[in-house]
Amino acid sequence: MAKIAVIIDNLFEDSEYIEPAKAFQDKGHQLIHVGLEAGKTVKGKKKGTEVRIDKAVGDVSVENYDALLIPGGYSPDQLRVDEKAVRFAGDFVKSGKPVFAICHAGQLLITAQVLKGRRFTGYKSIIQDIKNAGAEFVDQEVVVDGNLVSSRNPNDIPAFVKESLKKLS
């Protein structure tokens, strides 16, 4: 089964973490929570869901994981100011391994400068940012472009999970 890195920080969108995480675990995949500080507990923005960070982003390598999940909310915007988080996400996209990005997750990938020439979707407030990064914005519930699976918002979670699980099989 796949070993999935979940890059996450405070004020993540609870449902965009909980629902994919449960679906992945239900299929036997392992989640490793990667954040700015190992041992720290981060909380969701709406329900206060608590997630304990297993590994600091500076201590991980793409080679040790099979896929990357980036939940939305304010978490990606906070992670994008950390050069190690940006490098990890960017290296993941470049590796060709699956990257699952929902809602505001695109902010981290925009900062990593890995969306140029790709088809991608995200929350409406980052549409222009996606275009400015050189990507083709596609207004669909889920967009699959090579190793990238992206969705717009929590309403798209069922389609997002379905396509993400396909990439893991």
Score class of each variant (00 low, 15 high):
R52V: 14
L108D: 01
V99M: 02
P71E: 01
E13P: 11
E13Y: 13
K55E: 12
T121N: 05
T49L: 12
K167M: 13
L108I: 02
E37S: 10
I53M: 10
T121A: 08
D129R: 10
A38T: 10
G58S: 11
R152Q: 09
I110S: 07
Q113H: 15
L168E: 08
K40C: 09
G106I: 06
S169Y: 13
D139W: 04
D145V: 08
T111K: 15
V114F: 06
V86Q: 05
D129V: 10
Q140Y: 09
F100I: 11
G96H: 13
D59H: 05
Y17V: 07
T111Q: 10
Q25P: 07
I4Q: 01
E163S: 10
G72Q: 00
Q30P: 13
M1N: 05
G39A: 07
R152S: 03
L165G: 04
A105Q: 09
A101G: 12
N64D: 15
R52D: 09
P158T: 03
E63N: 01
Q30R: 11
L11S: 06
E37K: 14
V138Y: 11
V86L: 04
K46C: 15
E136W: 06
D129H: 13
L11C: 14
R152W: 03
K22P: 14
A2T: 11
P154Q: 12
R87L: 14
T111G: 05
H33D: 10
E163C: 06
I130M: 09
D82H: 13
H104N: 07
K94P: 09
Q113W: 08
K167I: 03
N147S: 11
A85P: 00
G146Y: 05
K27D: 01
I157M: 06
